[in-house]
Design a protein around this nucleic acid. Structure first.
Lengths: 140, 140
DNA sequence: ACCGTATCGAGAACGCGTTCTCATATCGCC
DNA sequence: GGCGATATGAGAACGCGTTCTCGATACGGT
């Protein structure tokens, strides 16, 4: 019956503050900062629960475990840094709105799409800066 | 060193004839038609070998096992039927050439992308989970 | 045709993400 | 504050894709 536990709050908090969707593992590490001793099973349990409640949505990227982000952020895509594997949510408008409800040659009826950009994030130094940010540090 | 076995030929043949990239499992079933008794381990072994030789390339789609397609087909994307899970290779030109080598706000330097379209293929018709109907309900 | 060796098939084993189990801790209503 | 119900943590267990093991098979140079 849906209780307000410190763990659940920490999990939602971490999801909201993240630059993009997180895996259960990442969430486990991040939310530990607020909920000491947080167990991985608890993370999974809460993610499933929150998804059923419609408060978070699952995001699947190629060759990667399930990721989750807060629900209600509308249509958008993601960027994955090939160095640190961090996934970022993109704010850009989607350049593929023409793919909403079309039928391609061959009878393929398109109803949705998924776009992922790959590259190097700022922290990993796109070309010059070697700024090294710890994506999993406990800085509140 | 590289022998010409019936199994290997059957595997390459199946990959060439497929409408899109195949998983090891799919390949196992398809190539069995030409190579009776083909083992799954053999499929994996050959895929890895063929990839090292540069004759096939790996394709990763969200929430799915590794897929493979013949190398040298140039830049293209894929379509996955949400009913039968078949993956098709798209012939369309890529509408995202502007994403070749740009830096997005936030310092995200884009070097590549991956686009997957979802929908219903011709064989599966377009009628069941319908929020919209496309009349192609035909035989199935 | 022969022989040495790469390949094969079947099944065990592995890796890893995810779920289950169960005893313990916690929440929140009375 | 007490109590029953729910959530938690640790680790075992699971599912599934992939790789390894090993005795048997078959390719291909001679």
């Amino acid at each position: 019956m849906q209780r307000g536990t410190a763990q659940r709050r920490a999990i939602l908090q971490a999801l909201r503050e993240a630059p993009g969707p997180l895996t259960a593992q990442e969430l486990h590490e991040l939310a530990r900062a607020d909920a000491e001793g947080l167990g991985l099973a608890t993370v999974y349990r809460n993610l499933n629960e929150l998804e059923r409640e419609g408060r978070v949505v699952e995001v699947r990227l190629p060759g990667d475990a399930r990721r989750y982000e807060p629900a209600g952020r509308g249509h958008h895509h993601h960027f994955r840094c090939v160095r640190c594997d961090t996934v970022f949510e993109l704010e850009l408008g989607c350049p593929l709105s023409m793919l909403e409800d079309v039928t391609l040659p061959g009878g393929l009826h398109v109803t949705g799409h998924e776009l992922v950009l790959f590259g190097v994030c700022d922290a990993c130094g796109g070309s010059a800066s070697a700024t090294r940010r710890d994506s999993v540090s406990g800085s509140a």
